[in-house]
């Protein structure tokens, strides 16, 4: 995928995933990089920014395998933003789709 497409979209993916359930860093990056080709290091600054801007809150939880993990949980503010941006995205994709098909005829 062209990296120009990723701008802003990754942030929406992060918001949309954490809205579904709490994630820890590695698990979240795995879910995204499985489908979208990105440098893994770009996710952490996004997580940190979304946390600083009040979309997420974090808590530490002991893990059986190693050091405690930091989990990200969505806030009410974050939930609203996630819903808005997913809706905008869907509208955008629908418009792009219908534009492409109208050109093909």
């Amino acid at each position: 995928m062209n990296s120009q497409f990723n701008k802003g979209v990754i942030e929406m993916c992060v918001l949309a995933l954490v809205k579904q359930r709490d994630y820890y860093g590695y698990e979240l990056v795995e879910s995204i990089s499985k489908r979208i080709e990105i440098s893994e290091g770009t996710i952490y600054p996004i997580l940190r920014r979304l946390t600083q801007e009040g979309y997420f809150e974090t808590y530490l939880q002991e893990s059986t395998e190693g050091p405690p993990r930091k989990y990200y949980r969505i806030t009410t503010h974050g939930k609203k933003t996630a819903e808005d941006s997913v809706r905008d995205w869907k509208n955008f994709v629908t418009s792009v789709d219908s534009t492409i098909h109208s050109q093909e005829k």
């Binding site: 820890y24 860093g25 590695y26 795995e30 952490y44 395998e65 190693g66 050091p67 993990r69 930091k70």
Partner: peptide, 12 residues
């Protein structure tokens, strides 16, 4: 956080 990440990746 970065140490946690690297540790998780190695465990995977």
């Amino acid at each position: 956080d970065q140490e946690e990440y690297i540790q998780d990746a190695i465990q995977a």
